[in-house]
Design a protein around this nucleic acid. Structure first.
Lengths: 353, 353
DNA sequence: TTATCCTTGCTAATCGTTTAGCTGACACGG
DNA sequence: CCGTGTCAGCTAAACGATTAGCAAGGATAA
């Protein structure tokens, strides 16, 4: 069943059927009615492939992810999906892993960066998508992609080191600052930090926020209380143990993610101390586990769905040729703390801020 | 840049270019070389939309999910994605939520079942996908979809009540039986069960496995130790408390998912008892939290990626017209226990099995 | 009445491929 | 030398829509 058959059955031309279906031109009531009757009788739907070929638009947004199982990815996709759906777009998903087999054919492509580039161009040049959202977990160097691309591209979650490309991230620095200030306000002064992998962007940005909080509170951070972690539970545990074993241990620990916070909490318990009575703990990410630890972890919630929504909106605005010249290249979604049970209020001699 | 231009530049016909690119017909070495040179010089890639229109095949598999944030969904998609990629297929993702806005237009569609049907037919009749995988979290009644569909459809994760449609599930019953037997083997006899929502398929299937284990072990289950849950943490906590407060409490509790198991563990701790010394606990799902509870939860792992792989394989086999008449409609992926620290071995008078 | 304008609806070109079917060249056997 | 077979490579139709541009008819004004 195609438009020609519908036209024939309704006794009109294919052009008229198209006009009726798309509402792109006036058609007299009786012809319109005849067309609609035939259409609904046969359950006809326009062939979107043919339409795409003609109008040079697929209404597909390509979503490229490093690994869909990453804890933040599904919620981001959910946001993208929702906003895309509202605007008549569909999502063509590409798990980078899925392209592995393809890359093996061209085995000169080994660098991750090149693989992302290749994946994106595969997506674009096959003309299967109108635009691409790259959901990056790490701050990759994607220089060089941009030049090759004439279609909208936005990076979600991770920041673009390349400033020419639009991106939607969350506010690592401010919320980290806020988290530390929150601890100050609860009376804490000896505040320890277990960092993320220090070469990564989020770890650096979060550290910046931490230092700003100290500065604005008028305290000098104690360097011996700032320990390097690597985002993993085990690091949280071992750094936590070290802190607990100090002769003058901290009263609060800010672990830069929930996994390390969990490790730290366990280290504290295993040392026979209590969270939060003896030592308070704040995490980051608000993953599912945060709500099931005992006590429940006070942490930072990233509005992942909001990131997805904003990324999709940006891409759609670009597709619709909205004037974006005044909009900043980087959209930063605010984070918020979720207060649970791992932070105690203490009375510190110097008083609250 | 299209095939005509390439043909022109290489001094051959478009047919020849197509034959070279697809390897569908012999072309002399020099012509082939000329074509390839022009192709790589201009970085030409065939327009897949035009190709799809011509060959009536999109190489897209539609993946319909209830909500991508569901804990099991991403891993399943990962599996689908991998197998699809290996075979040259791409994934068009449809979060059911994303179609919400679309459905509002046709507001007569209110029933969830109708919405799934509508979503699937939207996917199919737009000719945007060659086949559909429906990742269902619940055992929906999807009768009626099948008649309307002439393209491959497989249901992943949830079972199809409709027997005509192929599905890929996991083995609720056997693994539940195994879990209970494991407890028997560790010396437990007073074994309690906290069920899932009893009207759902997984809850019923898991219960069947539990009862079979008792039967095969030659024990009568104590009805007072079988309590209804609803998959949520709170139910696990309250049912757990009830069990702990009994005058003859169980030595082991099988909670039908990890969330309830977590609740139960907390109830036990809060009653001043120890897991596993006083009461052992087994969960189901092996979600992330299972590995971070203290002690780490012994639970059942569902091979989610395996489900995705199998679902994609089935759909691809159907697309490639492999003879599937002898293959069973339902593929059941085995589960396995992951032994951690919430089960203790006890000496029971009657001895081990 | 005639010129002008507006509206509806048609014809046919177009998007970029694939592929059936034809042509012509060449090889080979009788 | 002719008939036959094989093969490379071409032409052109087809896939199913959209849309520019034209034709025809009716309304309106002078």
């Amino acid at each position: 069943m195609n438009i020609r058959k519908i036209a024939e059955l309704a006794g009109v031309s294919t052009a008229t059927v198209s006009y009726v279906l798309n509402g792109t031109k006036n058609v007299t009531a009786d012809k319109k009615k005849r067309v609609m009757e035939v259409v609904s009788k046969y359950g006809y739907q326009t062939n979107s492939i043919a339409k795409s070929l003609r109008v040079k638009r697929t209404d597909n947004i390509g979503v490229l992810v490093e690994d869909i199982r990453g804890f933040s990815v599904p919620a981001i996709i959910n946001g993208i999906s929702e906003r895309a759906g509202e605007n008549g777009y569909r999502i063509l998903l590409n798990d980078l892993q899925m392209l592995e087999s393809l890359f093996n054919k061209y085995d000169q492509i080994t660098q991750h960066k090149d693989r992302i580039n290749a994946a994106i161009s595969l997506l674009l040049y096959g003309a299967r998508v109108d635009a691409v959202i790259y959901v990056g977990m790490f701050d990759r160097d994607i220089t060089g992609i941009i030049n090759a691309i004439d279609k909208p591209l936005v990076i979600a979650y991770s920041t673009a080191s390349e400033t020419a490309v639009r991106s939607v991230t969350y506010d690592n620095e401010n919320i980290s600052c806020e988290a530390i200030k929150y601890l100050f306000n609860q009376g804490h002064r000896r505040i320890a930090v277990i960092t993320g992998l220090s070469r990564t962007f989020p770890a650096r940005a979060r550290m910046k926020g931490v230092l700003r909080a100290f500065k604005e509170a008028g305290y000098e951070p104690d360097a011996s209380l700032i320990l390097n972690g690597d985002w993993e539970y085990a690091a949280g545990y071992s750094r936590g143990s070290e802190l607990v074993d100090m002769k003058d241990p901290p009263t609060a620990i800010f672990a830069m993610n929930d996994l390390m916070a969990a490790g730290t909490m366990d280290a504290i318990s295993d040392a026979g101390l209590n969270v939060p009575k003896d030592i308070s703990v704040v995490g980051f990410d608000n993953r599912e586990i945060a709500a099931y630890l005992r006590p429940k972890l006070t942490t930072v919630d990233i509005d992942l769905k909001g990131i997805g929504l904003a990324a999709a909106q940006t891409v759609i605005d670009m597709l619709r040729n909205r004037d974006l010249t005044t909009t900043p290249k980087k959209t930063v979604i605010p984070c918020k703390m979720v207060l649970r049970n791992t932070v105690a209020t203490i009375n510190f001699s110097k008083g609250a801020l």
